[in-house]
Design a protein around this nucleic acid. Structure first.
Length: 319
DNA sequence: AATACGGGGCT
DNA sequence: AGCCCAGTATT
């Protein structure tokens, strides 16, 4: 394993320039024509795509993004929507709290930014559901501000090419931020700024299409002969992220309840029992009372479900 | 620094 | 049966 400091030490201008050029050229030839990359996409549309893409793959976001933008083209339209409709429209994208945060952001943009999404990454960061990655991504992709964009793809690509590791560390480190900043093209000219923004998306694209987490397509990689990880014989990653269990988890139960609520066309839990009985079952996993109540109370507390009337009997909770 | 938080697709 | 995914917020 090569340490981060020695990796940056061996970065000479020629090597870095070649890596940049090859990845930028590769992107020019291989970029996917994603709907949110169309030139007429608004900054708001870019934000919507980025929020949907948080922990959700491109293939699953494609159609929902199109339908969403058709229904709510801008922050004003979304701000005027009912939270229940927003959650139902979110569908099965996962992590439905993202939909709620996006709705809150739309309202904040209307209220505090004259209905115009700000370009400043710090202002974006202050909006709900927008963190370090999304703020930088929207600034760079939608507004052409050369922020350093670091997502899971970028981290893996940098780790392999420059550090020689098969995978990035479990969480983003200061060393990774420094390296990523060092790798950005100079932004002293207008052309440099444009190149820096393309560098951001090109590195992400390389990670998504070629330098994938499992079974990377190294034979098709434009920087195969400049990759520190390949040069080291592609050693297996030392750190393996532990996977969170799913079967029987609260998340599974919460997700199943949300599925029933979407199917009934309303997020109020008053009719939940009737819906569950009418549709047969909640899912494969039948929760115990305590877990059912914990999940339901959690959803209500999170604003993902509403309790407009007192619920007299929930499935399995009648005494 | 750890943990909670969906859901589906791929190996 | 794991592993992974254009992360964020909370503890």
């Amino acid at each position: 394993m090569v340490s981060m400091s020695s990796a940056t030490d061996q970065l000479n201008d020629t090597h870095l320039h070649q890596v940049r050029t090859r990845i930028l050229d590769w992107y020019a030839q291989n970029a996917r024509k994603l709907p949110w990359r169309q030139p007429d996409t608004t900054a708001w549309g870019v934000l919507v795509s980025e929020v949907m893409l948080q922990q959700t793959q491109v293939a699953r976001v494609w159609e929902p993004w199109l339908a969403w933008m058709q229904r709510w083209p801008g922050p004003a339209e979304l701000a005027a929507a009912e939270p229940a409709d927003v959650l139902i429209m979110w569908g099965r994208l996962g992590y439905p709290r993202r939909a709620l945060r996006l709705h809150e952001t739309a309202k904040a943009v209307v209220e505090h930014h004259d209905g115009v999404l700000p370009a400043d990454p710090e202002k974006l960061l202050a909006l709900p559901g927008i963190g370090e990655y999304t703020a930088a991504a929207v600034s760079s992709f939608a507004f052409g501000i050369p922020e350093v964009v670091i997502d899971t793809n970028v981290r893996r690509v940098h780790a392999r090419i420059f550090t020689g590791d098969g995978a990035a560390a479990p969480s983003l480190t200061a060393a990774e931020r420094r390296l990523a900043a060092t790798l950005m093209p100079e932004t002293t000219t207008e052309h440099g700024v444009a190149q820096a923004n393309t560098w951001n998306v090109a590195t992400m694209e390389l990670g998504a299409l070629i330098c994938t987490a499992r079974a990377p397509k190294c034979q098709e990689c434009p920087v195969l002969d400049q990759c520190a990880w390949v040069a080291a014989g592609k050693p297996e990653p030392t750190t393996v992220a532990k996977t969170q269990s799913w079967n029987g988890s609260d998340r599974q139960v919460r997700g199943a309840i949300m599925g029933v609520l979407r199917a009934q066309g309303a997020i109020d839990v008053v009719h939940l029992q009737a819906t569950v009985e009418a549709t047969g079952r909640l899912g494969r996993h039948v929760p115990e009372d305590t877990q059912w109540n914990r999940a339901l109370n959690g959803l209500v507390a999170d604003g993902l479900a509403t309790l407009k009337h007192e619920v007299l009997a929930l499935p399995g909770t009648e005494n």
